[in-house]
Amino acid sequence: MRIFPTLVLLLLIAWPVSAPAAHHLVDEVGRPVTVPLSPKRIIALAPNVTEILFGLGLDQEIVGVSIHCNFPEKAKTRTRVGSYISLDFEKIVSLKPDLIIGTGAGNTKDMVDRLEKLGFSTYIIFPKNFDGILTSVRHLGQVVAREKEGLVTVRSMESRRQRVINLTRNLTRPRVFMQIGEAPIVTVGRGSFADDLISLAGGENVAAREERMYPRWGMEEVLNRLPEVILVSSMNPKGNYEKVVQEWSRWKMIPAVQHGRIHLMDSDLIDRPSPRIVEGLEEMARLFHPERFK
């Protein structure tokens, strides 16, 4: 049986590394994951993961981030391991991570399977609304052994949200049109983060009944809904806000145009499921109800 030693060797190589210093978890997409008790080399595959991890105080541990990770400033100094759609597996292997954290919204199942096959413990978060972000922060706190820090973030987000809800309670909700694409006109439907934020901030999303998350609307539908506030997401960093406002100014019958209530919002604060989304929420509430936020 000359093959036997080879088999043993193969098994040894393929066996999960050091079982005792790890705990077994189930991630947010239902995959069982074995995570080291205190991970030392972490790779974040999405901008919101990076923000959450830096928020938990893991400056030393984060060794790799995606090319989309632009916040906090420190994130830009870490090794880039590719984009949502294409990961640089060689770079990931070379960084020798003991934990990789991705997101169900950006990373595909194929990618995660491949990372798993390469032997990396990979935890996926998948927040779908404001509450989901709170859950993900709490989960990541447990995963990286920073539970206390996670809870601090969650509490502060909860109380800031409560303040917004209290201040805007019983106020008339302005009709809000959120524009996330300049051409074609794309807005936010049910189930998107921005839709959740608009209603939390005391507004009424005119496209709330759309079942697509990011429906593409014709202009006549916008005219028909007569929005009182238009929010323009800074989807394109090179986009020209003045230009967009000027385009809208042609449609004088829209109340938002008559009253100059067209506002630019940082898209990272409204469609990135990170703790900073609460800043987006507060800004929206200020824009919807300026009289309450003097």
Binding site: E182, A183, N236, K238, G239, N240, K243, V244, E247
Partner: peptide, 8 residues
Amino acid sequence: LLGLSTAS
């Protein structure tokens, strides 16, 4: 990619 808008 240079940032010219489609509308202009």
